[in-house]
Nucleic acid binder design. Structure first.
Lengths: 337, 337
DNA sequence: CTGAAAGCGCTTACAG
DNA sequence: CTGAAAGCGCTTACAG
């Protein structure tokens, strides 16, 4: 790289101190600097194409105007959509975002947190994987501002922004019942992640409260790895036998993606044979021959709230803000009566 | 935040200079420091939970170990997949990535470049929007390492990693011809972006060289804005009249997404009435009842190459490396004979 | 084997 | 209205 122009270069050219240059370029002490000198400083800065070195500024001010975003996988449409919203909101506040993908792996997320903290991010937005409680506690101990998003740990008092997953799953299941379905399956991950458990809990509650005799084989909890085959196997089990399910709730867009592909390939008729609802939308789901009924998370609001809370926390540590937003149910053909 | 532990704190505790602490923690001058002291320094660092302040280190070393990634839109699956690959490759080299979305807008990309440069990123990976030549020239002037990805400006000599879009479109069009299609349409964006022009050029060449009488109405070039309606209109025009097209090439995954949705809704039979090929894959496309034949870009290789070239350029400025990789054609049901 | 010291490019109280 | 100076937390020649 070329030698960069520094404040000192401008100061030398104009024949003033770097202090003065700094004040002018930061629009400080407005009234107290002679207009003429201020203008000469500005002109020179422009002529030399001066760019402030944020690293030096950060070291001095102890602010980097950078936030770290840790998601499970930036290539998952749910997270990349969220990332885009967070990017835009951050930008409005002159913040820049560094991202990292944890792959739902606590070791990776721990390393990411460490890297980002070393880089002195002003705060973090994290979708924490299971078993990462200690990392969250570490951030609390170190008094590093952060907001959990999508998931959280009910036992730890932190900022978070999520949806009411219990209610969302309950509503979806109730919808199946309302359109007359009697045997309702659900495919989800076997996981300690709170939001997934809430989804299963909501599903079970709705079934119970409607006095539908529940069969344990209706709820399939998959290992997160080896997903594709497991999903196919789960679907087979749900559809085989004399009492196949007539409705199916997918607990994530990824599961829905694989699941629909498989339903396609084995020629199941949706919604006639099987009504289907998925958590989260995805361009993908629109191309299924029966556009999917889905649980729509208010991503925009979630991203906005996360940034807002984070910036407030950066400003001054305050009481944790905990937001359980309400998700919508977008009803389409996959649950048509 | 809590007061952070600095090198000085460790130095004070152990009773040595910060220089020594720095050497030990960076594993420098290994043999020349007494084992005993080194061990005490390490123990103390651990006990105090020392984290190095990367900002201070960066200021001194003039390296931030950060790269900037500017794409059109991080929520577009093409770019988020690329981002994920770049993230992983960067991580292997201890680099971290800051991203930004330009929305194909040169003003936005200009601002992003400025922000990232001010933040002293060591280098940039950019998918440049149209009319951003001046920004690229600025980077060259300033001798800031960068690699263009996905698109580039043939008139400017830079590092870039892209596919041979001409060839990819040619191959796709040839495939239509090989399966007996006679009236082949293409929907693309009206744009000065080189890669899109190359796609149109490849399509036209294939038609010409196969001596198919080309009709200008077959090539639809849309304004990038208001896409959905434009695509529907374009499809209507292509399918209306006595001589509807019997094959259709979509020049991006976004266009394909909207296009397929519309084909679905108007009940066109793929591939019987209309054979279809799209640029780029997407989970989405698998859910279309006739899984799509698509042009597969070697994303993994592209991301890897981009990082490799960038890091080499950061190491020492060298001759521009220009990679036109070959895309594959994945043949599926949408072009079945 | 170890330390004193300069310096990276800024900001900001303090003094005048 | 303006400047000299300290300091943010590191690294690294240099000296011993």
């Amino acid at each position: 790289m070329l030698k960069k122009i520094s404040l000192k270069d401008i100061a030398n050219q104009v024949g003033v101190s770097t202090a003065l240059v700094s004040y002018v370029l930061n629009n400080q002490k407005e009234g107290r600097i002679s207009k003429e000198v201020a203008q000469r400083i500005r002109d020179t800065a422009k002529r030399l194409n001066y760019r402030t070195n944020q690293v030096a500024k950060s070291l001095k001010t102890n602010k980097t105007l950078t936030i770290g975003l840790i998601v499970a996988d930036i290539s998952n449409p749910f997270f990349s959509s969220l990332a885009r919203i967070i990017e835009d909101e951050a930008d409005k506040n002159n913040y820049t975002v560094i991202f990292g993908s944890s792959d739902e792996n606590p070791d990776k997320s721990g390393k990411l947190i460490e890297t980002l903290v070393n880089r002195q991010v002003d705060g973090l937005i994290i979708a924490p994987p299971q078993n990462s409680e200690s990392q969250v506690n570490y951030l609390i101990e170190q008094d590093i501002p952060f907001v959990l998003i999508d998931r959280y740990f009910p036992a730890i008092e932190t900022n978070y922004v999520a949806i009411d997953n219990y209610k969302a799953a309950y509503t979806a299941t109730q919808h199946f019942i309302d359109i007359g379905r009697k045997r309702i399956g659900m495919i989800t991950y076997e996981s300690a992640i709170f939001n997934l458990n809430e989804r299963a809990r909501g599903y079970l509650s709705a079934i119970k409260e409607n006095k539908i005799p529940f069969r344990t084989t209706w709820l399939k909890e998959l290992r997160p790895n080896n997903t594709k085959l497991c999903i196919e196997k789960a679907i087979n089990e749900l559809l085989d036998g004399p009492q196949p399910v007539d409705a199916l709730l997918f607990s994530s867009n990824i599961i829905a993606g694989w699941g629909l592909k498989y339903l396609n390939s084995i020629g199941i008729k949706v919604p006639d044979q099987l009504a289907v609802i998925s958590f989260d939308e995805s361009e993908a789901l629109d191309l299924f021959y029966a556009p999917l009924t889905y649980i729509k998370q208010p991503l925009q609001e979630m991203g906005r709230a996360a940034i807002k809370i984070l910036l407030e926390t950066i400003g001054k540590s305050s009481k944790p803000v905990q937001l359980n937003m309400e998700a919508g149910l977008v009803i389409r053909e996959s649950t048509a009566v």
